[in-house]
């Protein structure tokens, strides 16, 4: 059987949630995730909106028969990969902060 889940009292959860370390973790996460999320949503929806409402513009040929619409669509793949890569890099930092909080929580609980 896997280990029992970590259990503790309401008061300790509240204390952890209000601790400076946890607030720092949340702030660090927010600093990356919120702008990244907003950027990718805007970048992505620019594609259907431009394709749908400005098809002539998007049909502009760029290289040979390859048009703006296809290049912009293709760029979405690289956009997604780049954001994923940046997130993984940023998340190493989240892991480090979270590890400290977990270690501290184990001592708060004591013994186990």
């Amino acid at each position: 059987m896997a280990e029992e889940r970590y259990q503790t009292s309401q008061a300790i959860w509240d204390k952890m949630a209000n601790s400076q370390e946890f607030k720092d973790l949340m702030a660090t996460k927010r600093t990356f995730i919120v702008p990244a999320f907003i950027f990718f949503v805007l970048y992505y929806f620019a594609l259907p909106v431009l394709d749908g409402y400005a098809p002539q513009f998007m049909a502009t040929k760029v290289i040979g028969n390859v048009n703006l619409a296809y290049l912009f669509a293709l760029s979405q793949f690289f956009m997604a990969w780049i954001i994923a890569g940046l997130y993984v890099k940023a998340a190493n930092n989240f892991d480090r902060l979270a590890k400290d909080i977990v270690a501290k929580a184990e001592t708060l609980k004591g013994g186990k």
Partner: peptide, 23 residues
């Protein structure tokens, strides 16, 4: 609302997350 802090800490730190095991 009272249990929100617990979920917040668990989901963001992995504290007490289900572990790998044979069962």
């Amino acid at each position: 609302q009272e249990k929100f802090n617990e979920l917040l800490v668990r989901s963001n730190t992995g504290l007490g997350a289900e572990r790998a095991g044979s069962h």
